[in-house]
Each structure stands twice: as C-alpha cells, then as structure tokens.
Amino acid sequence: MSNWADICSIDEILPNMGRCALVDGEQVAIFRVKTIGQDIDDQFYAVNNFCPFSDANIISRGIVGSISDQVVVASPLYKQRFDLATGQCIEDESISLKTYPVRIAGDKIQLAA
C-alpha cells in the first residue's frame, strides 16, 4: 500500500476537472479541486473510474461540484453523485466507489498502488 507511484504532472489535470489513470490494471479517476477565492492548496481525490449505474468507465468525465461541504462528482450519463472523499453515492446508500490514497510529490501526482 505504501508503494507510491508517479502518475502524471499536476499540470496535466486542470483545476476542477478529472482525468483517468491506469494503475495496475485498474482505472482510477483523479480529480483536482480548487476552491475559488480562498487561499488554500488545490485538493486531490482518487476514486474508481467505473460507474456502477451505467457499467462504463466514465467517472473521470463528470462535473465536479459541492453539496454543502461535501465535494462530489456527478456521473456524466445518469448524473448520480458520489462523495469524492468517501466514494459514497448520494442517491443510493448501498453503492459506493472504491477510493485511493493520492498525494503530491514535487510537481507530480502520486497514487498508492
């Protein structure tokens, strides 16, 4: 688990967007979240890229947003939302996405695989 691997440089993911990475055969959606108007570092999240509602690898293409203080992504096909910190689906309690540790090292984004 403590095996951190470089995925890409920070600049390859634009603020408030996601990209998909291939890590040991798994598709991982990585998101970079920037809070407008506040002087805090961008936050990074990583969840599984597979949308269980549509059976397609599309989570990284969802729109990032918030519900109160929760940071969420909306799946682009049927718009179910998932908490990026926990992977929990907002619309269906029984469904959640696997989450992955993610960190910044220098100008690289790293995932623990």
Binding site: N16, V33, T35, I36, G37, G62, I63, V64, G65, S66, I67, S68, V71, V72, A74, K79, R81
Partner: peptide
C-alpha cells in the same frame, strides 16, 4: 464562472449551475 461564483454564488458549483 470563477468570477460569477466569487461575486454571486457559494460553494464549488455543481452539475446544474456549471453547464
């Protein structure tokens, strides 16, 4: 959008207000 959110909105936005 950033300017609109900063001046007139709150939070991060969402799949409704962003598009």
């Amino acid at each position: 959008f950033d300017e609109l959110l900063e001046k007139h909105g709150k939070g991060l936005g969402c799949e409704i207000c962003k598009p």
